[in-house]
Simulated assay, not measured.
Amino acid sequence: MKREKKENEIALFGTSADPPTYGHQALLKGLLTLFPKVKTWASDNPIKQHGAPILKRREMLNALVKTISNPHLELMQELSSPWTITTLERAKELWPTKDLIFVIGSDLTSQIPTWVQAKDILQKARIGIAPREGWPMDPLAIETLKSLGGHIELLPLKIPGAASSKVRNNTSPNDIPREILPMLFEQNLYGLSAKK
């Protein structure tokens, strides 16, 4: 099903980018086909142990954004916060008249009700859910979000199941876009080095 781009919309996609994978790349490219503007940033997830400091993750995400090379995609690190509510408040200040769509992967759908000020988050932006391979949509979780006042949109995308956690756990570079690999090798991130 095709989605009509509406000029007043901005898609917001924060990610741990720990490290960025083909999944992140596919999602950002997919969002550009659906929305007139896409903003992304590296964030600290308060319930995760990160494999690299946020400045390194921002640098890797920025490299990915540059390889996609689309003027409608922008890395906006100033939106980054461990708390989604803070990110959305910053976004509302920057674009008070825009329709904000906060994008998550289908794997996070059931987590939103546990987030700090979840009800306020659902009032400040629509939630765009991108289906990730291996994480089917959870109708019950979607209904829960709607019952909390959320406006949910299932995005017509197919995102590969490449996961940053696989890279961190297996030190396998297969899921990492080749433009980012040199950075990981040079800085010996995630146990990867040019000698392997």
Rank of each mutant, 00 (worst) to 15 (best):
L184E: 11
H50K: 09
E78L: 14
G161S: 05
G51N: 08
W95S: 08
I152M: 14
S147G: 02
K39I: 08
P173I: 05
A42G: 05
F35G: 10
L34N: 08
R3Q: 06
T67H: 03
L140F: 05
I101G: 00
E93I: 11
R57S: 10
E153M: 13
A163Q: 06
N45H: 13
P160V: 07
D99G: 08
P136N: 07
E179P: 04
N62V: 06
Q187W: 03
Q25P: 01
N169D: 08
N8C: 02
E186R: 04
K124S: 09
K2V: 09
P177M: 11
S193H: 10
L88I: 03
M76H: 07
D107L: 00
I54C: 07
A26Q: 10
G23N: 08
L31E: 00
I180L: 10
S81G: 14
N188C: 14
T67D: 09
D44R: 06
T114K: 07
K98M: 04
P46V: 15
R132E: 00
F13G: 00
I142G: 00
K196T: 03
G105L: 01
P156M: 13
E89M: 04
R3L: 09
S164V: 12
H24G: 04
W135K: 01
R90K: 09
A118S: 13
T84K: 04
T84R: 02
K146W: 02
L34R: 07
S165H: 15
K158V: 08
K29L: 12
Q77G: 07
R126P: 04
A26I: 09
L31N: 07
G191A: 04
P136W: 11
M60T: 02
L64H: 09
T144E: 13
G134W: 00
I68E: 10
P173H: 06
H50N: 06
E179N: 14
E153S: 11
R168C: 04
P53D: 08
T15V: 14
H24Q: 12
K48L: 12
L75T: 01
G149C: 15
M183R: 10
W95H: 14
M1K: 03
Q25T: 03
G51V: 11
K166G: 02
H72D: 10
F185Y: 15
P20D: 13
T109L: 01
V167T: 11
A52W: 11
E143P: 00
R3F: 12
S81Y: 13
P160G: 01
D18G: 07
G128I: 01
I85A: 10
S164R: 14
I176F: 03
E153H: 11
E186G: 02
I180W: 01
L154F: 05
P71T: 02
E78P: 08
Q49F: 14
A17C: 14
T21S: 13
L12H: 09
T21H: 06
E4S: 13
L12T: 01
S147Q: 06
T15S: 08
L154D: 00
L28K: 02
